[in-house]
């Protein structure tokens, strides 16, 4: 009798675990299928080559938002990637076990946990207020800062996996330390570091909250970094909350483009690194 109850409980637990897995996977599949369906129906060539049109006019696209997102991400990467890799090199090569390294590691984790909206208002008061107006540059700064912790921590982890013998071999050949770090250690770890950079990139590519008060959005083209600029996630946000069906359609198309870009970036990195193309450098 007791044994039967225990078997029953065991079966019930197994069933619950399977059920919960199903409940978790179902929304994901639902989101994905719905997104692809809605996006594919709404997507056309105009979306990529035309700017938004005023309310009431049919058609229009998000060409400026796509370009704007690319510019913002380029500025962000220019700031975030060198600083993150530099911090990672410090943690792995120079600061092992020091108090400073522990403090930096902890702050990187803190920075990682700062809500993106808080990052937005901080960059607003650090860059936008002194500058006097919303700008593409401030949006890039916000995204760049958000990239730093991910890049920094993955760089550190990847560098720590490089065996010490490699470093010593380089030094024994008389290579200066800085060159040994850059040309030997970092190059050996480069597939991992690039993966980390792309993950950080993918993460900030969809960020909306820090852009609301920095990049601000723009209905046309922006010519300078000091002007407000449109961004794909911002445009999706604005269009999703609008009461117009035409704009909803564009929001879905934008969402599909955004998610395809992100998944493409991540899987491209996976593919390249798994093929060992970059590993040839080592």
């Amino acid at each position: 009798m007791r044994a039967r109850i225990r078997t029953l409980i065991d079966g019930a637990a197994t069933g619950l675990a399977i059920l919960s897995t199903f409940l978790v996977v179902a929304p994901l599949v639902a989101i994905f299928i719905y997104l692809v369906y809605k996006g594919a129906v709404s997507l056309n060539l105009d979306f990529f080559i035309r700017n938004p049109v005023p309310v009431g006019e049919a058609g229009g696209g998000m060409a400026n938002a796509i370009v704007g997102s690319a510019i913002l991400l380029a500025v962000g990467s220019l700031i975030g990637v060198p600083m993150g890799i530099g911090g990672g090199i410090f943690l792995a090569e120079f600061g092992r076990g020091t108090k400073l390294a522990n403090a930096v590691r902890f702050t990187a984790d803190v920075l990682n946990g700062v809500p993106s909206i808080v990052m937005g208002i901080a960059v607003y008061s650090l860059v936008v207020v002194p500058q006097g107006h919303f700008s593409a540059f401030s949006g890039g700064v916000a995204l760049g800062i958000m990239m730093i912790p991910t890049v920094c921590r993955t760089t550190e982890e990847m560098l720590l996996m490089v065996p010490n013998a490699v470093r010593e071999a380089a030094l024994a050949l008389g290579v200066p330390n800085w060159r040994s770090v850059l040309a030997i250690t970092v190059k050996t770890a480069s597939p991992g570091i690039i993966t980390g950079c792309m993950l950080a990139f993918a993460r900030v590519a969809g960020e909306t909250a820090p852009l609301i008060f920095t990049a601000f959005g723009n209905v046309g083209w922006s010519e300078k970094l000091s002007e407000p600029i449109a961004a794909l996630p911002l445009q999706i946000y604005v269009y999703a909350l609008s009461p117009y069906d035409e704009w909803h359609r564009l929001a879905w198309a934008g969402a599909l483009v955004l998610i395809v870009l992100i998944v493409l970036a991540v899987s491209l990195v996976r593919y390249v690194t798994s093929r060992g193309v970059l590993k040839g450098a080592s």
């Binding site: 410090f90 901080a122 650090l126």
Partner: peptide, 25 residues
């Protein structure tokens, strides 16, 4: 030495950013 301090600077700037955010808020 220059390289070393450049890397320290990168690390410290992470520190600086968090302090800057906090102080600004």
């Amino acid at each position: 030495r220059g390289f070393h301090w450049l890397m320290v600077l990168c690390a410290l700037s992470i520190f600086g950013i968090v302090v800057l955010i906090a102080s600004e808020l």
